[in-house]
Every structure is written in structure tokens, then in C-alpha cells.
Design a protein around this nucleic acid. Structure first.
Lengths: 155, 155
DNA sequence: GCCTTATTGTGAGGCAGTCATAATAAGTGC
DNA sequence: GCACTTATTATGACTGCCTCACAATAAGGC
């Protein structure tokens, strides 16, 4: 639980490598995202404030945006949800969201390596240089499936 | 250009099949989305108002949301963009967005049939019943690539 | 045509995130 | 260790996208 010190040095080094200063705010945000993957900015703020009570929401937005541009964080936006952040970058894993309760699960890439980086283009499309492919599965998780089959349980 | 009448009957039938009344507002929205695929609600409103000037933004939101739930429209949300709508449903095609200019291109499914509907789950994940898989490619389109290589062209 | 009720219009309001500017503190050289 | 420069964070106001509650309208069945 307090092993964030282990990551601390790695985060600091990565920040320096990108020409960024090592601030406790950034470290707090990174630690919060690491311990609460798939969290929106608001939850990250709450988590980071436990060790840095004066941190403001705006700073979190700035830091999250900057770290995402640096590819130190990954950001994705499920439908009807604010943006979620996670520290798993580099591997091309995907996400499954439950359309009922909003749960998010990690999903390994279906093919094992970047499968979708070579799309088949429409005949009339201008091909783009693809950088990343995000796969977003939408379905119903086991819990919600059970609940919906028992509507009498509702309240 | 005025072949929307051809789709008109099909839309009306589909609406009835879902127990919805056939209103000119819904038909105008459907026609607008068909003629302007990958458009946000605001653009759909503008297009639909050309044939229905009194249509309100709120109605468009309601109609879009309802038709999306009915799977008559498909909705997807690229990062840093409002939700976009299209009439292509049923086939599992995907989308590529240019991170620079926001252009959206359709991409045929890489494997040709629903490839990603059988994800490999993490060992500790609870599998969900997957309904759809949205693949979102992010890259740089040819135009933007050229522009970025010629920064002197800016302004 | 009349009636019922789904659908749309109206106006207010909320959440997520952004912008401009001032205050702060990290990194650098002495 | 201290002053300095400038990146970074805090403050407060603000925007865009969308939702909610309720009144007005019109589609579909008779």
C-alpha cells in the first residue's frame, strides 16, 4: 500500500526525461492514477488530496492533460462518462465497459500484438498514419445481467 | 440529392417497428444524419432545420438519444469531441480520427467479421457479455501530415 | 373529426473541462 | 546556502455539451 515510493523514482525519472519538473503534485496525481486505474479526474483529485490536501481540480486537469500528451498516462472516454485515466501505457490493451453500471475491465489485445494498426481502408478513404487503436467493448457485466433478470429485486 | 424520399419509407417502417410514432422531426433528424455522417448534434440540428426551421436543439438530443438506444443510429465519442452520429448500423465498421484536424474516416473491420467480439479476459477479470466492439483508430491524416512538415505554411 | 398520449418545445440548470492571470516553487548558477 | 529565472500550480470566471421538469403540440386509433 505504501510501495508508491517504489514507483516514485521511476515517475521522477520519466518526468525529467520529458523535460518536466518533478513536483509533488505530479507525483501525487501519478500515484493516484496508479492506485485507482480507470478513474475520472474527480476521483483522482480526491485520491491525490489524501496526501496533498491543497491540490486543486484545475491543477489535476492540467497535469492529467500534460501527462497524457507525454504518453505517461492513457486517457479514454467511454460513452456517457467523463474521461478515465490509467498508468498502463505502451502495451495495447483494451477496455470493456458495462453499459448498465459503467464498470470497466481491462482486456488483453485480442490478437496479442497490435492487431488493428493495419486497418482496411474504404475505397474512397484517404488512409491516415495510425498511431494507436483503442478498442472499446460494450456489454453487460455478470452482476448487472443477474439484476436485470430479476426486476422484482428493484427496490 | 432529393432521394431522401427513398429512405423516408424505410425510416418510417423502422420507427413503427420499434413502436415509435412517425414524426417529421424524427425523419428530419434521420435524413440529416444520413446526409452528414459523423456529425455532432449541433450540425445535425443545423441540417435538419433546413427542412424544419422550428426544430429545437433539445428535441434533436432527445431524438438522437432515443434512436441510438433503438440501434437505428450509432453514436461514438472521439476524444476531445462531442458525440458523433451515423446511420450505418449493423455492420461492424470502425472509425479513424485525425488527432490534428478531427477528420473521421470509416474503416472496414480489420478481419472482415466481428473479430473483437471474443476478447481475451484478464485472469482476474469478470467476463462480460459483449454486445458491440468499437474500434477507434487515432492517427494523422495526409493533409495534416503535410501541413506539419511545413510549419512555415502556418498562417 | 375527436380523443388519448407519445412527442416536441421551453426555459432553467448541471457536469466536465478550459482560459487568463496571479502566486508559488523547482531547478540553476554563484 | 542564496538569489534568480521560469515552469508549474492556484484562483476565479467562463464555455460547451447535454439533461431535467413541465407545458404545448400533434400522431395514430376510433
Amino acid at each position: 500500500m505504501t510501495d508508491s515510493t517504489g514507483s516514485h523514482d521511476a515517475w521522477a525519472a520519466a518526468l525529467r526525461a520529458h523535460g518536466r519538473r518533478v513536483t509533488k503534485q505530479r507525483l501525487a496525481v501519478l500515484a493516484a492514477v496508479e492506485h485507482h486505474p480507470h478513474s475520472p479526474a474527480e476521483a483522482i483529485l480526491a485520491a491525490a488530496r489524501q496526501e496533498l490536501p491543497d491540490l486543486t481540480a484545475q491543477s489535476v486537469y492540467v497535469v492529467l492533460g500534460d501527462l497524457t500528451d507525454l504518453h505517461m498516462l492513457r486517457r479514454f472516454e467511454p460513452p456517457h462518462s467523463p474521461a478515465l485515466y490509467e498508468t498502463r501505457v505502451g502495451d495495447n490493451h483494451h477496455h470493456a465497459v458495462c453499459v448498465s453500471c459503467g464498470r470497466v475491465e481491462d482486456v488483453e489485445c485480442a490478437v496479442g500484438h497490435a492487431p488493428c494498426l493495419t486497418p482496411h481502408w474504404d475505397a474512397n478513404a484517404k488512409p491516415m498514419t495510425i498511431q494507436i487503436a483503442d478498442v472499446l467493448y460494450q456489454g453487460i457485466c455478470q452482476d448487472c445481467q443477474r439484476t436485470q433478470q430479476l426486476p422484482s429485486e428493484r427496490n
